[in-house]
Design a protein around this nucleic acid. Sequence first.
DNA 1: ATTATTTGGTTTACAATATAAACTTATTTA
DNA 2: TAAATAAGTTTATATTGTAAACCAAATAAT
Lengths: 92, 92
Amino acid sequence: MFKDLDPLLHSQLRLSVVSLLVSLEEADFVFLREKTSSTAGNLSVQLDKLSEAGYIEIQKGYSGKRPRTTCRITETGRQAFEDYVEALKSYF
Amino acid sequence: MFKDLDPLLHSQLRLSVVSLLVSLEEADFVFLREKTSSTAGNLSVQLDKLSEAGYIEIQKGYSGKRPRTTCRITETGRQAFEDYVEALKSYF
DNA sequence: ATTATTTGGTTTACAATATAAACTTATTTA
DNA sequence: TAAATAAGTTTATATTGTAAACCAAATAAT
């Protein structure tokens, strides 16, 4: 009847992040924080979860002297997003 | 950028219930429990929340001698569902 | 030169949620 | 009349989501 919704994506902030990464391929922490209007703390936690699940890859580097965390979606993450969108359709 | 998702509907079970009620107009507790594959306890709690928010109306009556709880969606609930679907589009 | 502020985060503590287990009350069935 | 089933509700627990507090480094102000 209703398809299960991946709990990892069924969260406003994580869904926003993945949604952005699906089209952008790469985005840094500050960009994501601004686009999602989230706090840094919350974003940090949610990025870790997505990373833990293998949905995104996180690279910590530097932009000049300032730290710069960049994220990109993985194939797993892209697939999960597609599945999520598909599953949602069963509710409408 | 991303529209806020009504937390009351952004829950698999509550969304399932509202989704059913939007097209069915009326459904009883047992029907909802079966269609959503939920436990009675969980369903009971979530129905209360939807009712509390004015998204559904709950009527407790009898079918013969057995108790029968029937639910129907309210105009508020129907509108909230539409808004939720609309908001979701901003993520895709 | 030292102090204060900003930047880019992470950790942690707390509040809210979701969920199932346990319970209740009434009704059949054995 | 005892056991099982039905239809829920209540309550306890585990999981989440979130922001506040924190930290380290860089830049700006005095």
